[in-house]
Structures are given as C-alpha cells and as structure tokens.
Design a protein around this nucleic acid. Structure first.
Lengths: 200, 200
DNA sequence: ACCTGAACACCGTTCAAGT
DNA sequence: ACCTGAACACCGTTCAAGT
C-alpha cells in the first residue's frame, strides 16, 4: 500500500526485495528484469545501473540467500541440548530453509557462478565454515581435519539431498523429518562419528 | 555430416536427440524450441505438432533421463560383490549420472511437473522402485516396510545431496567418492541398516 | 551517478492455411 | 496428421541522451 519511498538512492534494494517475492511466487523463470522495473516504477533500462545483467541480480540474490541461511544454521547450532539434539535441529533448519525457499536454494546451488573467487562462492564458504567450526568445537580430536571434513560433507550432503527429494515431491515433509533423524543417528554412531565425537 | 533422414516420421525423435545435446552444452536456459527447429531444418512452428509447449519437451527429456538413470542403477545392482560393495557401486552410479548429466538431472528433479499421475513422476517411481526391490531382496525381514523405506530414502538422499554438492562445485569428484563410501559404511552399520541387513 | 527511451535480436505461443 | 509462416506479446541487452 505504502508507495515506494521514491527511487533515488534505494532502487537496488527495492529491486532485490521485489525479486525475492517474484522468485518465491513463480520460480527463477518468472523473474524478469523488465517486470521488476515496472513494479518499481522505473524504466526498463534502469536496473542496468545496479545489475550489469540478469545473472548479476541472481548472484546478488544467492549471496543474500547464503547469508540468511547461515543465520538460521547459527541459531540452530546455538540452541540448548546435547550434540545429537543439536544435530537434528541443524538438519531441520537446513531442510526447512531449502524447502521453504526452494527456488532461492536452486539459485544458490546452481553452478552458473563457477568463479571460485566470486562473492557467491564466498558466501557459500561462510555457510559451510559454520559446520566446520561446530564440529571442531565439539570434537575430542581437533587435529583430525580429514575426518572432520568427511563428517561435515556427509552431513551436508544428506540434508541437501533430503531437501531436494522433498522439493521434487518424491517424499513428504514428514518423511523428510524422519530422514533427518535417521541420518543424525547413523552419522553419530558411524565409525567416523564415533572417532570425532566419542561422547554419548 | 549425414543430412537428416528427412523430417517425415521422426521429427520428434530428432528434436529430442538434439535437445539433449543442447541441454548438456548450455543448460536448460540454452534450450530453445526455435533453435531446435532451425537445427532440424523445419519451421519454428513445427515442434508444436509433437510438443504442446516447451515444458512438454522438458518433461519428455526428464522421462528419458529417468529411464536411462534406471538402466545404470540396474547395472550397478547386478554387479558381483557383497552387499557393501554393491551399495558403493550404486552410489557411484547415482552420483556419476547426476554429475555427468547435471542439467538433465536438474530437469528431472525440478518440481515443475507437480502432477503425481504424470509420466515424469511415473518414470521417477520406476527408478525408486529399483531401490525398494533391491533392499527387499537383500533383507532378512521382508515384512519391515517402514524400515526399508527409511533406509532407501536415507540412501537416495545422501547420493542426491552428494551429487548436488559436486555440481555446485562445493566439493570435488574425488571428495564425492569418499562421501559415497563413508555414507555406505555409515548406513550399513547404523541401527537401521543392521536391523534390515544383519549380514556382515 | 543514475535514469530514460529507442533499437535490436531473440524468445514462446497461437492459429489459419497448406499438403 | 504434420508442417508453414505470419502475427502477437514478451524478453535481455546495448547505448546515446538526458538530469
């Protein structure tokens, strides 16, 4: 209702905000620069001043997405409870985000942005660093880098895959929660899990 | 070099074949009906006789993809070796397919086709039925449907996620193989795995 | 520095018409 | 049944010009 606060300084922010809405409503395909410009009340050439092309806007959305994702994971990691319980919570936060923002998630993990030095890959690295730190803090053997990486990759892969199966409607959300719990149990009781985190 | 064998009966097949090439080379975005028609030497309206719209062609590609995927999994399941070894092979076949045909895989698991009675979901069901049959054949407790489903979902999720992480260039292919092996070990030695497959 | 507006080349989709 | 070709509405991108 409130008319957009003018389009002087903040067109970039307005475009990003509206883009996220369009993304959630119609997926990547529904995201059009011209439509975005129309909604913002500017000419179709205006976005060019802030995003060199469509991919640049998608990249910016991906960076935002990774940062927001990281916030959720951080919150789950900081929750009370023992290690297994916190693992489950992180897993659910992972899957919840990936399912609720499925189109954004697709964007984040689409390999369009292959540049390893780019801001998207950097934002992704910040997210995955959280897992690394969390496992490092919980382990009895902080020096065992190899096992730590293997453990967290296995964890991330399982959650990522669970989210994909839900998004593809191969399984329901409820089934997804069971998978998360089963995965947590299997991981913590595996050779790798016991080596890193003997507590329990 | 060989001029297309005319476009009488087989335009549909020609379009699909060429579409798969374009898909592999440039991703979904690079797939244009008009370009496809141009390559086939027909007018831009011709594809309409075989695919009602672009999505219909994408769906047909997805169905083909699931069937080809199923062939690979079947081959891995039929290979010699003990259960753990066959699990690893299936996992690698899963990840290999998903990485080599990343764009096709994206198409297959994109939720565009939400219709549960559609041919895409049916083709997907045929694939996942293979996992179900394989676990059922290997288990000592064929009646435990719940555990079987949970086990195979956990397996599929892990492989799917591993493939996504590789495609997103978060991990290398070599790291992916380690994840597959670790996942196999963790799954088979988990409570769920031991319940179903006590051998070993 | 930011935005406008015309221009260009490319789409998907529809549909009457041909064979 | 299958294909043509014009028509329509929509894109992304470029770029000179304005402020």
């Amino acid at each position: 209702m409130t008319s957009r606060p003018f389009h002087h300084g903040n067109l970039r922010a307005v475009l990003l905000e509206q883009a996220e809405v369009m993304l959630r409503e119609g997926g990547v395909d529904a995201l059009s620069l011209r439509e975005l410009a129309r909604q913002a009340g500017v000419s179709h050439g205006a976005p060019r001043s802030h995003f060199i092309d469509r991919q640049a806007l998608l990249d910016a959305l991906a960076v935002q997405g990774f940062d927001r994702f990281a916030d959720r994971i951080r919150a789950a990691l900081a929750s009370p409870g023992d290690l297994a319980e916190r693992c489950r919570l992180v897993g659910r936060a992972y899957v919840d985000f990936a399912v609720d923002d499925a189109a954004l998630m697709e964007l984040m993990f689409a390999a369009k942005t292959t540049d390893p030095a780019g801001p998207v890959q950097a934002a992704a690295a910040r997210l995955f660093q959280l897992f690394d730190d969390a496992v490092a803090a919980a382990t009895d053997d902080p020096a065992d880098d190899g096992a730590r990486i293997r453990f967290q990759l296995l964890f991330a892969a399982t959650m990522q895959g669970t989210a994909t199966l839900i998004a593809a409607r191969r399984i329901t959300r409820a089934q997804g929660e069971v998978v998360v719990d089963d995965a947590t149990d299997a991981l913590l009781s595996s050779e790798l899990g016991v080596r890193l985190l003997p507590r329990r």
